[in-house]
């Protein structure tokens, strides 16, 4: 899949939207607030979703510094901001549904779960140092698996028309993010195979990356557990993960990217509930519950940039 990045950038610039474009006071909120069971489930779900968008935003910020050319750097600069916009929209939906704690004008941000906190910590410390091959291959997987599946679940579950209007816009952005993501996945499959393999093996030995993997894998399993608790069929998540393998593996370049292969195999193990993979990873999920909070770094200030307000 060859992508004309200059055209893509122009398209991104031409299709910008703002929170103010959505009528947050339109009727329909009662479809959520009037259903106590749905409300309680959604409250947890929305907080996770918002944090995942926000984590994705930080990964795009790292990509903007590593992009191979100015056009892609600018695209990632936009994507970083767009993911922040999505998180802002999700926070605004929570505000609409009365899910934010604190007083009305200064609500308190919902706390991210421990696995998200660990990923935020890792991203803040190491993401700018990670090789482009790793970030560029993980981002489409994160987008398609978590973001894609979560959004689908939300729209299947919630009937509020404002939520649907907002996600129509978000999904248009996400389609472009995926388009560029898979383009990068293929770009990184160019070159001599043995060189790609040696480079990937070298990166895999990087302790900083190992810590990142140790933070990321339990997050995936935790999200799966949370989703199941909320009533999402596991298959939905697995369908989304298979999509990564299907789209990323369409071209030879995509398949030659060792990171695509690693992530695809890891996805296959995630999907297979009988795989041994889940023994250590589920153990890690339980272990992280005991992770001492005092070892976490202070919340980075980029986390505090989220807002539900249309105007500042």
């Amino acid at each position: 899949m060859q992508l004309d990045t200059a055209k893509m950038l122009a398209k991104i610039k031409n299709t910008q939207w703002a929170l103010a474009d959505i009528d947050w006071d339109a009727p329909g909120a009662e479809l959520v607030t009037g259903d106590p069971e749905l409300y309680a489930k959604l409250k947890v779900f929305m907080a996770d979703l918002m944090w995942i968008e926000h984590v994705g935003a930080r990964a795009f910020a790292a990509m903007a510094k590593k992009a191979p050319d100015d056009t892609l750097a600018e695209i990632y600069r936009y994507f970083h901001a767009e993911e922040q916009r999505h998180a802002n929209v999700e926070m605004a939906l929570m505000k609409r549904w009365g899910m934010l704690e604190g007083d009305a004008d200064n609500p308190i941000l919902p706390e991210p779960n421990i696995n998200l906190r660990l990923v935020i910590d890792w991203l803040d410390t190491y993401s700018d140092e990670m090789p482009i091959e790793v970030l560029g291959s993980v981002i489409p997987s994160l987008e398609i698996a978590l973001d894609g599946a979560l959004c689908k679940f939300l729209l299947d579950t919630v009937q509020d028309p404002v939520c649907h209007a907002a996600f129509e816009k978000i999904n248009e952005d996400e389609a472009r993010h995926l388009g560029v993501g898979f383009h990068m996945l293929e770009v990184m499959g160019h070159g001599k195979l043995h060189q790609l393999l040696v480079k990937a093996a070298g990166n895999l030995l990087n302790p900083k990356l190992i810590i990142g993997i140790a933070a990321y894998l339990p997050l995936l399993n935790r999200m799966r557990d949370n989703l199941v608790k909320l009533g999402l069929k596991e298959e939905r998540l697995y369908e989304a993960m298979n999509k990564y393998k299907r789209i990323g593996g369409r071209t030879e370049q995509g398949r030659r990217n060792p990171w695509f292969q690693i992530i695809s195999h890891q996805s296959a193990m995630v999907v297979d509930r009988k795989s041994f993979y889940h023994v250590p990873v589920d153990a890690l999920v339980r272990l992280t519950d005991f992770y001492p909070r005092r070892l976490l770094k202070a919340t980075p200030t980029w986390v505090k940039g989220l807002t539900w307000k249309t105007a500042a």
């Binding site: 610039k13 910008q16 939207w17 703002a18 929170l19 103010a20 600018e74 600069r77 936009y78 901001a81 767009e82 922040q84 916009r85 802002n88 929209v89 940039g305 807002t307 307000k309 249309t310 105007a311 500042a312």
Partner: peptide, 21 residues
Amino acid sequence: SWPIANLSEKGIRSVEGIEHQ
């Protein structure tokens, strides 16, 4: 440091979706 999407009647709309009035 968000990119500017456009100027509006009351201020600057940046790509993170907020209008800075």
